[in-house]
C-alpha cells in the first residue's frame, strides 16, 4: 500500500492530539504499522497543536512527515496555512468549514468541507467536535469502516463516561455519513 501520512492540526483544546491517537489505534488494531507524533513545546493552553500519524503495511520509515502529506485535517486557518505547502498532489484536505477558508488551496488537492462546530452543536456538546472529525477521516481512508470508529470510541470512553460515548459515536456517524 501507499503509506498514509495524516496530519491533524487545530487549536489546543480541540482534541486533535487524542483524535490522531485514535486513528493510530484503529490502524494498529487492523494490523498496520503506525506511528503518532505530537508537536510539543513549552506547556501552554490555547496554542496551536498538531500531530502526525503514519500508517503503512511495511515498516514505518519515518514518523516525521516532512513532506508529502496525503491527508490533512485542518481545524482552523492557521493549521491550513502551516501545512498546505506540504500537501502532496492529489492529497485530501478535510477542513472545519466553520473556521477555515479554502480559497487559496491549489486545485490539485481534494477538499472536503465539514462544519464540525455545527455537528457538535446539533448533538448538544461542543466536546464531540473531534470525534466528528474522526468520522470524516475514517470515511476518507479505505482501510477503515464505520464499525472501527464506533468500537474505538467505545473502547476509549465507554468505561469512563457512557453518556459522552453515545454522543461521540453519534458525532462520528454523522460526519462519517456526511461523506
Amino acid at each position: 500500500m501507499k503509506s498514509i501520512k495524516l496530519v491533524c492540526a487545530g487549536f489546543g483544546g480541540q482534541g486533535v492530539l487524542s483524535m490522531g491517537q485514535m486513528v493510530a489505534l484503529m490502524a494498529m488494531k487492523k494490523g498496520f504499522n503506525t506511528s503518532w507524533m505530537p508537536s510539543y513545546g513549552p506547556e501552554m493552553r490555547g496554542g496551536t497543536a498538531n500531530c502526525q500519524v503514519v500508517i503503512d503495511d511495511a515498516e514505518i520509515a519515518s514518523p516525521i512527515i516532512a513532506e508529502g502529506i496525503t491527508l490533512l485535517l485542518a481545524m482552523n486557518q492557521m493549521a491550513l496555512t502551516k501545512f498546505q505547502p506540504k500537501l502532496e498532489k492529489g492529497a485530501w484536505l478535510i477542513v472545519n468549514e466553520a473556521l477555515v477558508n479554502t480559497d487559496e488551496v491549489p486545485s490539485d488537492v481534494h477538499v472536503l468541507k465539514v462544519d464540525f462546530n455545527k455537528i457538535a452543536s446539533e448533538i448538544g456538546n461542543p466536546k464531540v467536535q473531534n470525534m466528528a472529525a474522526l468520522g470524516s477521516i475514517a470515511a476518507q481512508l479505505d482501510i477503515f469502516d464505520k464499525q472501527d470508529g464506533i468500537e474505538i470510541i467505545e473502547e476509549k470512553f465507554g468505561m469512563k463516561n457512557p453518556e459522552l460515548t453515545k454522543l461521540n459515536q453519534k458525532a462520528f456517524e454523522v460526519a462519517y455519513d456526511h461523506h
Binding site: 491517537q21 493510530a24 494498529m28 504499522n33 503506525t34 506511528s35 503518532w36 507524533m37 505530537p38 510539543y40 514505518i60 514518523p63 516525521i64
Partner: peptide, 10 residues
C-alpha cells in the same frame, strides 16, 4: 532522541 520520547508506536 526526543522523537522516541514523544511519539506513539505499537
Amino acid at each position: 532522541d526526543g522523537i522516541i520520547g514523544q511519539m506513539m508506536e505499537p
